[in-house]
Design a protein around this nucleic acid. Sequence first.
DNA 1: TTTTTTGGTTTATAAAATAAACTACTTTAT
DNA 2: ATAAAGTAGTTTATTTTATAAACCAAAAAA
Lengths: 96, 96
Amino acid sequence: MDKFKDLDPLLHSQLRLAVVSLLLSVESAEFVFIKEKTGATAGNLSVQLDKLNTAGYIIIEKSFKGKKPLTTCKITKKGIDAFEQYVINLKQYINK
Amino acid sequence: MDKFKDLDPLLHSQLRLAVVSLLLSVESAEFVFIKEKTGATAGNLSVQLDKLNTAGYIIIEKSFKGKKPLTTCKITKKGIDAFEQYVINLKQYINK
DNA sequence: TTTTTTGGTTTATAAAATAAACTACTTTAT
DNA sequence: ATAAAGTAGTTTATTTTATAAACCAAAAAA
């Protein structure tokens, strides 16, 4: 067993992993919803969503809900693939 | 399902997780052996072993092999428990 | 109409990971 | 015997990351 393959640093972060995990289970999610589900602060979430977006793991769409700004996130194929590989690699660490 | 419990930051680090994972499968391990198995640099490994030691997750014993210094590591009960809890929590992120 | 709330972003600070430099020998080659 | 190279690490400095604090614009409430 060739152990300890590198863990994608973009996913090996508690908050970003939670976001991706969450997005895997829904069609799309709004900023405020993700914030509540993860318990993150808005600032931290904003930064981490940007990173996932820049990496192409999620897409972020900005619109308006009535008159208020609305940020909607959706996982991409690239994000799903990265997550799946991350889980495969991670299991080498946690299943002896 | 109440998701996303905090992940012990001491274990949520690629290198420290690899070290603990490795130590779980052996009685004890020498510095050089851990270094080779994890692919870490000596400096990084030294720092991360100190952190695990300070947290009481491992014990570090310094002796000599012939005339050369020898650093031997062993996981503690506390380390095993922390790892098991970490895995339980982590699974909430990776098993949708 | 001022005050508060909503939905964020930007910037600053703290913490972590990593690499580079260094120490203290030991072994090998000259 | 001595210089050069290797071993087994530690310490310090640098980069990266995570997080928090401060801020902004608009909307809703008082």
